[in-house]
Design a protein around this nucleic acid. Structure first.
Lengths: 352, 352
DNA sequence: GTGAAAGCGCTAACAA
DNA sequence: TTGTTAGCGCTTTCAC
């Protein structure tokens, strides 16, 4: 059955009106008699008309400017990965006139975040994508966007009690549960475990506390009740090294869960001290972690996939602005478990 | 700098020729003087001209028919999942006139495969996507396609020594290595392990032997040398149950690796026999496996993601036919590790 | 060897 | 309230 796909002029003909009228009801910009409208809608429904998005985009060729507000990647391997996601997304939309403005801020500098948002604002973008590292500032920025009805895609970090167009990221609590489950599987009964945060990050976001919460909650509902310590490490190498030495001297620790992408600091420490037998679970495929995973000083990495998160954030906003596709309010990524063996398949894959 | 994206008429103007001539060199369909061609190419290069794919697709509105040859999903949960991938891909291409013909064959019936390929052929598709479950038949079918220069995307099962447009799937050997690594992590030293194949599947494909190979290779290069048994189970419930009873009576087995999506058969058996403590690793998120993973009778599932494989296969072929995008010759999926805890994130995610 | 012109499906401005 | 028309960037036909 080579049934021709109905176009706007087909329904115009069927309804006995002109394409202009059909177009008016499609975009309900009024000035159509009630009966015409009814008839046209009926026919649209009947023949299951779907507008041709190609043609639509071709004629709507106004430039769309969007702003992306993310941490500076220069010194941060995690955010460096998002760069590839940006490129992939731009590639996908390169037949559309999308102008992507990127505003970067320093991960530990609230002022620079404020500056970035201000700059983004003054560029009058049609939509904004941002990473709300700083709780308060993020929330008030979101509010400001809402006021002028600017669509916002938020990613990576969840901001409770906010209502952006869409949140894209992982479930931090659940990722902590996962870490605990894995730890449970690979450590011996009776091992002490420690949850490690790094100071610099801790003050910035609720992320890490949620991960800890998840980690603890796993064991509170399991048959096993290991000793669970929490330690907050200082950011400077000299200091956290000392802290670690003390920690490991005073406790017989079988497993370490690092709440950020800095598991490599622990892996390095263990390697230096030649302390085999301690299981390490952390986050993200940044080069140093990858190296230690390969060498067996880190055992599992949970991949938060900043590349795909960034890519999907841009795609989602573009789809909304260009095709009026309304996204799910939350898009959660699967919690990816990376080991020494499947590491390569993750590093080489462009799919995930 | 609001630099206008150059279009075909811009380069025509710059080169002092008409757009017709520019188009002729773009698609080098000759009848252009050497100097015109040189000049135009130079300008294209200089201004970095990229054709607008929207406009191109809009004018090239001929219907494209593609054939998809896959196992029947009615009785097979694994293949049932591919259905969603088909829908997602069709959705993505719904502004293009893509006609997707689906030919299904029975998983254990070579004849039905032959019938499906014959039917697909006689529909004169512009491209073919197929799953080469049957080694010989698959290979000769591929050859036939090559002869008439029909582009072929092959997925799920790898066919050595073949050269399709693209293969999409996972690395079976490596997935076996991964299973072994996980097994190594969660079983005690001294445990015997068994690699289980199911008869019905074994004769069809090289898959399972590759998985076994990978599994064994892990231990042959590790510090641990556990007893590794291999067993081929019969397909009927009554028979494999007996085989399992015997197997577990005669051996103290600590871990079971099932080379297909039928780990649930082992999980059920263990549950019935109340044999806790045996670790089970298998493939795929089919409902029965999911249930047993939740209940702790299966410990890891490696997700081969038939939904995404199907979706990506269709997208890849369409992109080739519509936009002439030449894909990588192999697109390998990451090896996804699914546990009780991250299961939900996989089941609910539309991303992977 | 080249250019002019029609038209892909749709939007929007304008005329009636 | 409705119809007509130009044109988005490109391909293709046809006449020169």
């Amino acid at each position: 059955m080579p049934k021709k796909i109905p176009g706007i002029r087909d329904i115009a003909k069927l309804a006995g009106v002109s394409i202009g009228t059909v177009d008016r009801v499609l975009h309900n910009r009024g000035r159509v008699s009630v009966e015409s409208k009814k008839k046209i809608l009926a026919i649209i429904n009947e023949v299951n008309y779907k507008p041709n998005l190609l043609a639509r985009s071709l004629v709507n060729r106004k430039k769309i400017t969007i702003a992306l507000i993310i941490p500076d990647y220069k010194l941060d391997e995690y955010w460096k990965q998002s760069q590839k996601g940006i490129e992939a997304a731009l590639q996908a939309w390169n037949s559309y006139e999308i102008e992507l403005l990127i505003f970067r801020f320093e991960l530990e500098d609230t002022q620079s975040f404020l500056k970035a948002t201000a700059k983004a604002f003054s560029a009058y973008p049609a939509g904004i994508i941002f990473v709300p590292i700083f709780y308060d500032r993020g929330l008030s920025f979101l509010k400001k966007c809402e006021e002028i009805e600017l669509p916002v895609v938020m990613f990576n970090t969840y901001l409770p009690a906010s209502q952006p167009l869409c949140f894209i990221g992982t479930d931090s609590v659940q990722s902590g549960v996962l870490a605990a489950e894995l730890m449970d599987m690979i450590t011996l009964n009776g091992s002490k475990m420690v949850i490690l945060h790094f100071d610099e990050d801790l003050k910035n976001s609720a992320h890490m506390l949620e991960k800890e919460k998840g980690f603890r909650s796993y064991f509170s509902s399991s048959k096993r009740f290991p000793d669970l310590l929490t330690a907050v490490l200082n950011n400077t190498r000299h200091q956290y090294q000392k802290q670690l030495e003390k920690l490991f001297q005073e406790n017989k620790i079988g497993g370490v869960f690092v709440s950020t992408s800095k598991a490599h600091r622990i892996g390095e420490f263990l390697e230096q001290q030649k302390m085999g037998g301690v299981k390490v679970i952390g986050y993200d495929l940044i080069p140093k972690n990858v190296e230690l995973l390969k060498n067996g000083w880190i055992h599992f990495l949970i991949n938060q996939n900043p590349r795909r998160q960034t890519e999907l954030s841009i795609n989602t906003l573009c789809n909304f602005l260009v095709n009026k596709t309304i996204p799910e309010s939350q898009i959660l990524f699967p919690l990816e478990v990376v080991t020494r063996v499947n590491l390569k398949s993750y590093l080489e894959s462009d799919i995930h």
